[in-house]
């Protein structure tokens, strides 16, 4: 396993080092798939998006400049590709009902959680793509507001506004009455 930093690996990738590329890709594959799935709504689209994103990293590596974190740059590629895909085909969560219930907890809890999952999946699916992306970056990838804003190509304050609107919309859809 290559322990070099992402940026050091990118410099090697820029010189055509395939080994560096194959060392860097696994670091972000799962997180990128998760991000793309949360934006696109289904794993098939997410798979294609992430594959395309990695190929773009490889092809455009010679043009990459180490001025920003690789992660921010890469997530931005994934975000843009996923957003383009949702513009072509509407968000369609295939697994809104959630995972099969875990046999460990009691059946009523499992059913309640499954119902919550179904409701939240449906509510998130109805959000505009950018608000959905803000939720995915904050709750899914647990990025800071500044980094998430950089990925979405906006300011930190605009991102916070986006997030507040998304949460408010979710509360309305889930019929939650309290404020922030």
């Amino acid at each position: 396993m290559d322990e070099a930093s992402d940026e050091a690996l990118m410099l090697r990738i820029a010189r055509g080092d395939e080994r560096a590329f194959r060392a860097l890709a696994p670091r972000y594959a799962t997180r990128a798939v998760a991000l793309a799935r949360r934006i696109c709504g289904n794993p098939a689209d997410a798979e294609e998006v992430v594959q395309e994103a990695f190929l773009r990293v490889w092809v455009n590596a010679p043009r990459w400049r180490p001025e920003a974190l690789f992660r921010t740059w890469f997530y931005r590629i994934v975000f843009n590709l996923a957003l383009n895909r949702t513009r072509r085909a509407p968000f369609a969560p295939l697994e809104a009902a959630g995972d099969p219930p875990d046999p460990a907890p009691p059946a009523d809890q499992v059913m309640e959680r499954a119902e919550q999952d179904r409701l939240i999946a449906s509510a998130i699916a109805e959000l505009p793509a950018r608000q959905r992306s803000a939720i995915a970056l904050t709750y899914g990838d647990e990025l800071s507001n500044a980094e998430a804003a950089a990925i979405l190509g906006t300011s930190a304050s605009a991102f916070e506004t986006l997030l507040v609107r998304a949460r408010r919309a979710l509360r309305v859809k889930l019929r939650m009455d309290d404020g922030d």
Partner: peptide, 16 residues
Amino acid sequence: IARHMHRDGAADEATA
């Protein structure tokens, strides 16, 4: 929201 976001971890790993 957080639970929903992290519920497909195994499927994401298979896709990755």
